[in-house]
Amino acid sequence: MSERDYEVFSGHESFACRYGWLPKLHEALLDDPELFGDDDDAIVTLGIGKNMVRSIRFWGDAFGLTQADGKRIVPTEFGSALLDQKKGLDPYLESNASLWRLHWKITTSANLGAWTSAFLDLPDTEILKEAFLKAVQGKAVSARGTITSGTVAQHVDVFLRTYDAGRASASAVVEEGLGCPLQELGLLEVADFGANPVIRFRRGPKPDIDVATIAFAVADFWRLVAPNSLSLSFRSLMVDRRSPGTVFRLDEASMHRALEDLTGAVRGLSLREDGAGGVDLIRTQQMTLNRLEDVAWQ
């Protein structure tokens, strides 16, 4: 699991990632890795405006789907495994399980200020929007020394439009109204109470997180925190920063069921009581983390 070493609060050009953008970007870069070397060519190829071109470029990196290779922009290993037309798991992002993977990548690796504030730093299930803005502003000031309130407000608005289907403007054009695919996950909503909107996060079961997606997240987390260890505690998987329980907003019962399903699918992986009232996820010496990744992409 890689991560930018700096906080990001802009670059999306005020656009949330839209339906169809990521598969379109992947195919365009396979045809022309130097596509973004000329704005006019990118505008024509992608069929979107100049600011949207910059935005789609931003989201490709943020979701871990693209990376720079000199002057070229190429799909990452993750991007190809997910979106390749012939061998990819889900080239058109038709499955919510694939969207959970994208949520995992952008939350754990992109280091976007609003995402880390919401999903990694905030333990509560709801927060006043005003308080959330202040939290992101504080993070931005710590990271950059200074930032305008307008930049923070725009960044938070893009974050909310990424996940909350209710944020689409009534006057938006049709494409704008289509929203972002991550709205399908139902992770949060903004409840408007006059001058005090509340952001509510949904913690609990996520039935569309399948065994392969849990294997993907657990393998990534295990490599980050303890690549040479043969065990991870349930508590670590549940509450640690960048853990599956934290990023996916699972409750304990849902996490336990997910791990039971995972151990049933992977030979050499088991759940065992730790002798102190807790549970550990254990792998045998022969079961490498590569096996989890095989299950994630099979």
Score class of each variant (00 low, 15 high):
His256Gln: 06
Leu160Lys: 02
Ala97Asn: 04
Ser243Ala: 09
Thr162Asn: 07
Ala258Tyr: 03
Arg249Leu: 02
Ala165Ser: 08
Phe132Ala: 03
Glu252Ala: 12
Ser254Ile: 09
Trp115Leu: 12
Ile282Pro: 01
Ser55Asp: 07
Val266Ile: 14
Cys180Gln: 07
Gly194Cys: 10
Trp100Val: 08
Phe216Lys: 06
Ala135Asp: 15
Met52Asn: 04
Pro123Met: 09
Ser109His: 09
Ala114His: 00
Leu292Phe: 08
Ala265Trp: 03
Lys206Cys: 04
Leu89Thr: 08
Val74Gln: 10
Gly194Val: 06
Gly145Phe: 10
Leu82Lys: 02
Ser98Ile: 07
Lys50Asp: 10
Phe63Lys: 04
Gly150Pro: 03
Tyr6Ile: 10
Ala170Thr: 04
Leu289Ala: 06
Thr116Gln: 12
Ser142Arg: 15
Glu77Gly: 04
Gly204Ile: 06
Phe234Gly: 01
Leu82Glu: 02
Arg144Asn: 14
Pro33Tyr: 06
Ala42Tyr: 02
Arg72Val: 04
Gln298Ala: 15
Val158Phe: 09
Leu46Val: 03
Gln137Ser: 13
Arg161Cys: 14
Glu34Cys: 11
Met255Ile: 13
Glu77Tyr: 01
Ala265Leu: 04
Leu281Ile: 07
Val225Pro: 05
Ser10Trp: 11
Val141Leu: 11
Glu189Cys: 13
Gly49Gln: 08
Arg202Asp: 09
Arg291Ala: 11
His26Leu: 05
Leu237Pro: 00
Thr151Ser: 10
Asp84Pro: 04
Gly177Tyr: 10
Glu13Leu: 03
Asp69Met: 04
Arg4Asn: 12
Ala217Gln: 05
Thr288Met: 06
Val44Ala: 15
Leu187Gln: 03
Pro207Asp: 12
Val44Gly: 00
Asp39Phe: 14
Asp280His: 09
Phe9His: 13
Gln286Ser: 13
Pro33Asp: 01
Ser270Met: 05
Met52Cys: 09
Ala118Asn: 09
Thr151Trp: 00
Ser55Gln: 10
Gly268Met: 10
Asp40Tyr: 07
Lys71Glu: 15
Asp5Lys: 13
Pro123Leu: 08
Arg72Cys: 04
His26Val: 06
Val279Ala: 10
